[in-house]
Design a protein around this nucleic acid. Structure first.
Lengths: 116, 116
DNA sequence: GCAAGTACGCATAAATTAATCCCTATAAGG
DNA sequence: CCTTATAGGGATTAATTTATGCGTACTTGC
């Protein structure tokens, strides 16, 4: 997580801005699930299932760092944390839905293209 | 390029279908430029500039393999190759434009989020 | 003949991202 | 007391992706 990149970032176009910040394996999915009301780390982890707890935690912390999500830590006896989307995060929802729709409506062809 | 993945692919949702196939650093950009009429490898390479010839060639060959782009090899004395979008490739253009538009319209915020 | 342009490719190194090992701490339920 | 649940973290390894070193072959223009 404290990794300093050696190859300069590409900011030349919107595509690269998107990619530099949202390339993480679960980031878009996390933003989507948070938008549906799953806010707590445990909930998100159970929902995603195949992803390791720490991987999700890393992706979430980057989303916070980059301003897509904010983290609320409650001061309760039993630890409680909730994530919520910032305006920037919300601005991504149409894009995410568009990507998702493209993938689903081409699922047949895409699955054949995937190895094995 | 002949790399066998060890972690099973995720086909569970449209987002992952998209990601598994189009995660490459220059893939979306290549599809976009091809749609604008840049068809030959040399043209594309000069346009992108910062990307190495071989990296672009790899990404293009994957795009061909996965059915987004087709490759036409002309039988001329001086080698000539052209790429063109398949229907599947064309179906991506609205998505690409949407991503690009999101990135550009949030450029100010996004650039501040990027390290250094 | 020689430089520059077309296009391509194998093998390896480097960079980046994701996954895992082995931990802490508190509280509620039984 | 013990199990399960909450949430977390540093250090390391593995997996994946990108970049590079060093070649091929042919043609056109000077």
């Amino acid at each position: 997580m404290t990794y300093e990149k050696k190859i300069p970032l590409r900011k030349d176009c919107g595509l690269h801005l998107f990619k530099e910040l949202l390339n993480g394996k679960w980031k878009l999915m996390l933003i989507y699930y948070i938008s549906t009301g799953l806010k707590r780390p445990g909930e998100l982890q159970r929902k995603i299932g195949t992803a390791d707890r720490r991987v999700l935690a890393n992706q979430l912390s980057e989303l916070v760092l980059h301003g897509f999500v904010s983290k609320v830590i409650y001061d309760t006896k039993v630890p409680k944390v909730e994530y919520e989307l910032t305006d920037l995060g919300k601005s991504l929802l149409p894009v995410i839905l568009n990507l998702e729709a493209w993938g689903e409506s081409n699922r047949d062809v895409l699955e054949k293209a995937l190895p094995v």
